[in-house]
Simulated scan of single mutants.
Amino acid sequence: MDDRIARIQAKLAALPSTEKAVLNPVLTEQQVSGFEDLHGIRLPEEFRQFVTRIGHGGYGPTYGLLSMDRWMPPRKEVHGKLAEPFPFAPDEYVSTWSSDEGGQMLPFPGTIAVVWGGCSQYTLLVVTGPGCGRLVEVVTDSDVVPHFHTDADFLAWYERWLDFTLAGHRDLTWFSHQMAGDEPELVDTLVNSAFATRRNAAAYTFITYPGPRASLPDVLVQALSTEPHPLVRKTILRALQAQGKQGRDLLPAALADPVPDVRCLAAILMAANTRQGMRLSPGLRRTLADHLRVEDDRSVRDTIQRLLDWPHR
């Protein structure tokens, strides 16, 4: 634990001044134990170490880490009782999040809020339940299902944030969907992990990965051909598009996908976003026109036709 604390402190110190990486003063043991006694829980050890040895609230993802007085947001739909278990486990795709009667969305028991992402989005830390110690992303008062971050604990999650910032990821908007690892590790996860959630996180990471190898688009399209889960295939398509022209030129491989939504997304992502607007290369335009003649799903046909009808494409 000491090595991890020292590593995070060193990375915080290495950040450029433009990051304004300021954390609030640490909490005392009495403050932390007082919160725990009040709610009948024990905070995950990695989080306790962070707030008592590194800092408490301040620099972090989106609008930063929340201070103790905001761990329990006043909005009633954010949380339930902390001693009641959060019902979902990591590496599971959650299909529904609602009351037994199918009505109002339930609050999120067994969690505290550590990041407010704007509007009704929160990053929660599970303090009770099978995912104890893990971070989970939620959108309150909606049917958007919770999803766990891949990081093993709070320290791993925060260090990944520092690593992504220091490495120069192109965009940190996708941070909650991504995972730690260098390019070979991410490829191995994408190709070999038994968990669709982790394969999806690896694919998401390649959307912003700085300085990928020239061979990455070919690796992605090979993974696309063997990926069984349509949600992961859609994320791979986004990762391909993020590789520029080389990746977009490989997107037609998904026009044979059995799921219409995947074919629609592949067609949409073939268009490049330029200063003059969205543009289709002549080759991809011909590919879509040829596919339109054999496509039998109306939604896919409509999508392709709209793309072909755009002026000056």
Score class of each variant (00 low, 15 high):
residue 3 D to W: 14
residue 4 R to D: 14
residue 8 I to P: 11
residue 11 K to G: 08
residue 19 E to W: 08
residue 22 V to M: 07
residue 34 G to D: 05
residue 34 G to Q: 07
residue 45 E to Y: 06
residue 48 R to E: 05
residue 48 R to K: 14
residue 56 H to S: 13
residue 57 G to C: 02
residue 63 Y to W: 09
residue 63 Y to S: 11
residue 65 L to R: 11
residue 65 L to I: 07
residue 65 L to P: 01
residue 65 L to E: 00
residue 66 L to I: 07
residue 67 S to M: 09
residue 68 M to P: 07
residue 79 H to P: 07
residue 86 F to V: 03
residue 95 S to N: 14
residue 99 S to H: 06
residue 101 E to Y: 13
residue 103 G to I: 12
residue 115 V to I: 11
residue 116 W to C: 08
residue 122 Y to D: 09
residue 125 L to C: 03
residue 128 T to M: 06
residue 130 P to Q: 03
residue 134 R to P: 03
residue 139 V to I: 14
residue 140 T to K: 12
residue 141 D to S: 11
residue 148 F to Y: 09
residue 152 A to M: 06
residue 155 L to V: 08
residue 160 R to L: 06
residue 163 D to A: 00
residue 166 L to E: 00
residue 166 L to M: 01
residue 167 A to V: 04
residue 172 L to I: 07
residue 177 H to M: 12
residue 178 Q to S: 11
residue 179 M to K: 10
residue 183 E to G: 01
residue 184 P to H: 03
residue 185 E to F: 05
residue 187 V to N: 06
residue 188 D to E: 13
residue 196 A to S: 15
residue 196 A to P: 06
residue 197 T to F: 07
residue 198 R to K: 07
residue 212 P to F: 01
residue 214 A to K: 11
residue 218 D to W: 13
residue 224 L to G: 00
residue 224 L to I: 02
residue 230 P to D: 09
residue 234 K to W: 11
residue 235 T to V: 13
residue 236 I to D: 02
residue 240 L to M: 01
residue 242 A to D: 01
residue 246 Q to K: 15
residue 248 R to V: 04
residue 273 N to S: 15
residue 276 Q to T: 10
residue 278 M to P: 07
residue 280 L to S: 02
residue 281 S to N: 02
residue 281 S to M: 00
residue 287 T to Y: 13
residue 290 D to F: 03
residue 294 V to D: 12
residue 295 E to R: 07
residue 303 T to A: 11
residue 305 Q to R: 14
residue 308 L to C: 10
residue 311 P to E: 10
residue 311 P to D: 02
